[in-house]
Design a protein around this nucleic acid. Structure first.
Lengths: 109, 109
DNA sequence: CGTGTAAGGAATTCTGACACG
DNA sequence: CGTGTAAGGAATTCTGACACG
């Protein structure tokens, strides 16, 4: 319950591989960093390094972007997830799910 | 019991980072591949990609090399570990531990 | 706002080879 | 055998900017 986390959170993946893994362009990945959705580390020479966790976050971001969610909204959703009050979190997620499902229906058909 | 393995075995780390993680030079890492101790994948353009598992193997290799074990011997130890008969494996490991401890004593003092 | 692209430069990685021992 | 190094080239990554909308 610790060793797995160390693999998941360790920042070791360069942007080219992350691009492959997520299907996002490097431009998009850098932009999401600029918007503070993702926080890579840097090598001594300045190259970005990401974790598997970051890759999963980016995939989640890509899915939300496809659903028309703005980076600003995504950022707020992420900060809500970080509030460690499970009651509020559950309530928020349920509500957001309904709102977003409704929104998607309106826009996809 | 599956998700962790996927992080551990996924080949996503480039040689520069592996060098940092293991303390080995890129030259050494490439040489251990030549000696068939490690098996990175390649990107489309030919860059090597390693997993966390590979990194751990390399650290184990580095430790054995420090103890004077040759790449040839290390390779054989690894293939023994792959024999999935736990009785033989345990016996072999015990024996090798004794032999190697004895060997190290003779050589370090 | 979100993403593409061309620009120029710096750092990364690759291979094959010579060196030493 | 195991590792260092210089060599030349190709691919990677970085930043800042212009473009479109």
């Amino acid at each position: 319950m610790e060793s797995e986390a160390s693999y998941k959170k360790r920042k070791v993946i360069s942007i080219g591989v992350v691009s492959q893994l997520t299907g996002l362009t490097e431009r998009q990945i850098r932009y999401y960093e600029e918007r503070q959705l993702i926080f890579p580390e840097r090598t001594e020479k300045g190259n970005r390094l990401y974790s598997f966790f970051d890759v999963e976050q980016l995939i989640a971001i890509a899915n939300k972007r496809e659903d028309g969610v703005s980076t600003q909204e995504i950022k707020q959703e992420f900060s809500n997830e970080h509030s460690h009050n499970s009651k509020y979190r559950a309530r928020n997620n349920e509500l957001k799910g309904q709102i977003q499902a409704h929104f998607n229906k309106k826009n996809k058909y």
